[in-house]
Amino acid sequence: MFNVEVNGPFVAFFVFAAIMIGGAVLMISLEKVVHMVVSMAAVFLGLAGMYVLLDAEFAAFVQVLIYAGAVSILMVFGIMMTKHNAAKEPVRPLHETLAAVGALSLFGLLFYAIRQTDIPETGAAGAGGAPGAVTDNTLAIGELLYTGYIVPFELLSVLLTVAFIGAISLAKKEAE
């Protein structure tokens, strides 16, 4: 893991990783809610760059459209519709310490598992017949979506429709 040669994708990986971790840490530590959403948008854009590095161009564009566009704007609207008074809430040191210990121990566990796992070196650069590595990624995903995954795709459309109708009827003003 630590003795790879320094090349273009490696440098890009570290730049995107720095953007994402910096954005996430800022999201946790900033004071104002709108600043938190903007730093989250930086994380989403960094993830899109990471997807391009991983030969997933379609997922990268979907990430930019849905997350950096729609979800960020939705959160900004949610902030706008609710009130955020600047009054200092009482801090909860025990609660926050427990949460930090839990998150850190989970990370330790995951990191140990990742380092212990013996991952075979295959598949890089489209070896082993990755269909999307050399050909058109979006075309391959579209073909797969409309052949092998047609039933989940249709179910997901129904889910989206139900979710948006439900969101409208939930947020609509109650009739007096």
């Binding site: 990755a130 797969l144 439900g166 947020a171």
Partner: peptide, 30 residues
Amino acid sequence: KYGVVPSLTGQIFSVFTITVAAAEAAVAVA
């Protein structure tokens, strides 16, 4: 990309996850 059996299934799954997450965000904000 880097798994033992590289295929597009992971990307399809991630697109599904993004869709479900968008629906979740909309309902949650409502």
